[in-house]
Design a protein around this nucleic acid. Sequence first.
DNA 1: ACCTAGATAGACAAGTCTGTCTACGTCTGC
DNA 2: GCAGACGTAGACAGACTTGTCTATCTAGGT
Lengths: 191, 191
Amino acid sequence: MLSTPSPHREQILATATRLFFEQGYTITGVNQIIAESSVARQTFYHHFPSKEALCAAYLDARGADWIEALRRAGNGRRSARGVARGLFGYVEELAIETHFRGCGMLNMASEFADAGSAVRERVRVHKSAQRALMRELFLPFGVDGPLTDQIHVLVEGAIAGAASLLNVEPIHDALKAAEGLLKKAGRDERR
Amino acid sequence: MLSTPSPHREQILATATRLFFEQGYTITGVNQIIAESSVARQTFYHHFPSKEALCAAYLDARGADWIEALRRAGNGRRSARGVARGLFGYVEELAIETHFRGCGMLNMASEFADAGSAVRERVRVHKSAQRALMRELFLPFGVDGPLTDQIHVLVEGAIAGAASLLNVEPIHDALKAAEGLLKKAGRDERR
DNA sequence: ACCTAGATAGACAAGTCTGTCTACGTCTGC
DNA sequence: GCAGACGTAGACAGACTTGTCTATCTAGGT
């Protein structure tokens, strides 16, 4: 069965992850994935019955990785402000590293127009999980749900803004905004 | 010269605008644009020497339209909060109307990985103009630059977030965050 | 009446795309 | 020793891609 993780499958998925993110889905052909994975055509179609199936696997893997990385970036902080700094610091790091390629999930969604498609649904579930992660990270510091949702919007805006403007300014702006909102919330609470 | 606006050119550009936005750039072929524009192949290549040239024209036109629409949505308000409500109200309206298709400029950027490409540069200039527009709209109410930049991030995050989650919640969150930041700024100012 | 510019339809080149197929090799368990 | 699983290499089908080409038609100016 699939209990043993096939190295071929992993290799194909790794190549696809790189190419889908760096180039985009439509523009990346299975021929290129096959060639750069150094596997045979049949091997590819054995593990993934179609390009779209590979896309689904890519979204699942990448989504989980991203959530985990974001959790690590926000964990172990001593304050809500610290969590925010961890999050946006990681976002900045990644933006520079990827040459402002933006969010892999959102980029994929932009290539699937139909809002009812399986891809869009997967992206929706992922972003929903990201939203829940914000709650999880800020909850220990008494930050309420509505505010964590607002910070989530700032994270999304930071990534999208950096990809548009090709620099890290929007990420800094987002962090400042998050700090402002947290400060305000603290002040309101003490009243 | 190009002083007389050719109706054919306009027709092609209108079709491309629709298809590029609804479907995406790579997936939309010139054949489809030609067919749905009801022009001859040669006519297409007469007005646009290549698909990429058409893309550039699309970005220019759509970018200008978007800025203008956003200006109208934020203009004629009596307070900074009113401007924010106008802006996010328009963003919400559009998100629903387009079935959460997101931002046409950002979607296009996501299909051009090379950060140095002409397309990415055009998107960058557009977002820069959008940033300047935020300043212009909020300036009459004494809102300073850094804060308008933060609101701009919220606008970006609202559009991207709505496209991801397939609902308008992120837009409401963004508005709440903007109102919070404006309120906080007003309070700080009075201190 | 004639000439030119612009539009038309459509063939065409040269390449790409996804997915299926055959034919051949190699490794493992029984 | 041999069957079956798994791998490889590569041909192939059929559709699609962008951009160029020819050949015909039509309208306006002189």
